[in-house]
């Protein structure tokens, strides 16, 4: 049996674990630059995580096992997703474990438990966060599925590796459907990863926070795991977008040189993804909760237009 694919699999997970904080750090640095502040450097998230891991855990008196189990589950789902999304190579032994729909569902189970953990302590904030998070998720889901539908039309597959290979081996054509799906995907990714204009990861103001409200009671290693997992989630959504829409550079074999090239391409593309994210985040303001129906409605509209233009125009 060939061990190389397995090795790449392990390598991918390691890259995910180690590079996700750097990616978040890069986004923060860019944001500081764009707002004229001095930054704490790309490596600040590592220091944050190290600090949190070394601290003791303080649990609320009535926290149940769900509260303690959730960080591990959220972390586990993110790591598993890292083994499935083709970051370096499309030739992954685990790639067939899950197609895009299963990947979305993996994030959904992490969200389900986070929302439960938010309600576990019985504070008003936790419940508020859970309620809002689940509302936003349920509005984002139809748009996400429609985007997946549109992407699967061209590649005739919902498996990410197959999608990437279809783009890599096909002729470069200007496809309106893919362009629409990409736009929709960006909007959904903003909602799913809790970025501006849907949620603000930097705020702890009670009226605006959503994800932070759910995890407000966490501390120590639990908080570290959750933070790490949410960094990985951002990284994974960037990787997901890259694999589906711009897989150029991702290796289709498991030879050493293409994988090395894929690593370099990945770094470059993630750098660009960070710039795009910061441009969006600086350009937009956080939306009111009930304006989000329009935001996610637009995502749905774009994805649907993609589907329609595939049938009408292509």
């Amino acid at each position: 049996m060939n061990v190389y694919p397995l090795l790449i699999e392990v390598l991918q997970v390691l890259i995910l674990l180690s590079a996700a904080p750097a990616f978040v750090g890069w986004v923060r640095v860019l944001k500081c630059w764009s707002q004229g502040r001095s930054s704490a450097g790309v490596f600040q998230p590592y220091r944050d995580l190290a600090k949190l891991f070394s601290k003791d855990v303080v649990l609320a008196e009535n926290a149940s096992w769900i509260f303690r189990f959730t960080p591990y589950l959220v972390f586990g789902a993110a790591v598993l997703a890292g083994g499935i999304i083709p970051i370096l190579s499309t030739d992954l032994p685990l790639a067939a474990t899950a197609d895009v729909i299963v990947l979305v569902a993996l994030f959904a189970i992490a969200r389900f438990f986070t929302a439960l953990a938010g309600m576990d302590i019985g504070t008003a904030f936790g419940g508020m966060g859970s309620s809002r998070e689940m509302t936003i998720a349920s509005l984002a889901e139809p748009a996400m599925l429609m985007a997946i539908f549109t992407m699967s039309l061209a590649s005739r597959s919902t498996s990410l590796s197959q999608m990437a290979q279809a783009v890599l081996s096909g002729q470069p054509v200007l496809r309106p459907s893919i362009a629409f799906a990409l736009l929709a995907f960006v909007l959904i990714a903003l909602a799913e990863t809790g970025r501006i204009p849907v949620d603000n990861p930097a705020t702890h103001l009670e009226l605006t926070m959503i994800h932070e409200a759910m995890i407000l009671e966490y501390s120590g290693r639990h908080l570290a795991l959750i933070e790490w997992a949410s960094m990985m989630k951002l990284f994974l959504f960037a990787a997901l977008g890259i694999a589906a829409f711009a897989p150029w550079g991702i290796s289709t074999t498991d030879a050493f040189l293409p994988v090395l090239a894929a690593f370099i391409f990945m770094t470059l593309k993630l750098g660009v993804a960070g710039v795009v994210l910061v441009l969006i985040e600086t350009g937009l303001a956080k939306m009111r909760l009930f304006r989000l129906t329009e935001f996610l409605g637009s995502a749905f509209l774009l994805a649907t237009l993609g589907m329609l233009s595939y049938f009408i125009l292509e």
Binding site: N62, S64, I66, A108, R111, F112, A115, L116, G118, M119, D120, I121, G122, G127, S130, S131, M134, T135, A137, S138, L139, A140, E141, P142, A143, M144, L145, M146, F149, F300, T304, M307
Partner: peptide
Amino acid sequence: PMGAALLALTGALAAACFVKAFGVTFLGH
């Protein structure tokens, strides 16, 4: 495909509903 979107909406709303059902019944005070 519109039906698929509605099914996705259903699934996500069901998750929201069961966070509520379990969270309110079994969690908190």
